[in-house]
Design a protein around this nucleic acid. Structure first.
Lengths: 166, 166
DNA sequence: GTTGAAAAGACAGGTAG
DNA sequence: CTACCTGTCTTTTCAAC
């Protein structure tokens, strides 16, 4: 289900930076006509490469200036049902923006944005109340240096997926 | 610099979920006319609450399926210039999507999305090569359970910042 | 905040390379 | 099969109220 040429990648990069860029503007940047760009975007949306579009909000502006990362450890012998309970909780909890199942010492890493320390404290208490959870370690964010969405990698740099030589 | 009423919050929530929702559709949801919604959006953009709009891309679809979180510890006695060097590196590095200055045991938490383990390994080597960095701990993401942007909190729940009555 | 109108963009043909 | 062109419809945007 893949086959992105350079034009596709450029379009994705532009839309990632400005989700409301017009087809004409994008077309000008890649050297294509607006309808052609439209057709490509349509294809990228249907194939799932473009999941959707979102307004990027200022966390502090919507009263959620407090960022925190929570490393969650689950009990060694945890039933599948208990895992599900934890993941259901995560999906339903608005304060939790991200949840990643990770390897290594921890089981999950959560990204949280709350309004106050009190609400964060309350959230942590509820997390620890879940049967599968044995331990949490929380890091409070002081400053956000960088925070952006995933974009196509620019070129055949160190992290590029392309450029595999035979 | 603030003063978001319920309509603003609803508009922000809708635009967060669908950054391309038309003014008319948003207006219908909040009970306002399209130009009125437009005026509010304009105000929210100028005040900085809306930072912009972005297409949400499938990480695997753009060849960056490998997620990782890197906890970075800096040396106890680190000059301001060295801190700056690290932050400049972070801002310039496309593989690093997020960087948060945190308290606690660690100094920074990075969110990384790379193409391969090899490119991640290369990135970690470069991070460790920075003078200010003394130690890194990396967690590889197995599954992403949840991953979304910040939105206004729905109501006066546990994490709400509002509730101040006039 | 609303209604109404002009400008701009999105979208669906049809056409050519 | 892919991209461009043209016409129509929608959306945005600005005006007056």
């Amino acid at each position: 289900m893949q086959g992105l040429d350079d034009n596709d990648l450029k379009i994705l990069e532009l839309l990632q930076r400005d989700g409301r860029a017009t087809h004409a503007a994008v077309g000008k940047a890649v050297g294509l006509s607006a309808p052609s760009v439209y057709a490509r975007i349509q294809r990228l949306e249907k194939s799932g490469v473009i999941r959707g579009y979102a307004a990027q909000l200022d966390p502090a502006g919507v009263g959620r200036g407090l960022a925190a990362f929570v490393r969650v450890t689950t009990r060694a012998i945890t039933a599948s049902e208990e895992q599900d309970e934890f993941e259901r909780f995560v999906l339903a909890e608005p304060l939790i923006l991200e949840c990643h199942d990770v390897d290594g010492e921890d089981s999950y890493i959560l990204k949280v944005r709350a309004a106050t320390l009190e609400s964060l404290r309350d959230l942590l208490a509820r997390i620890r109340g879940i049967a599968a959870v044995s331990r949490t370690v929380t890091s409070i964010g002081m400053v956000t240096i960088k925070e952006e969405g995933v974009a196509p990698l620019p070129a055949n740099g160190p992290g590029a997926s392309r450029g595999k030589r035979s």
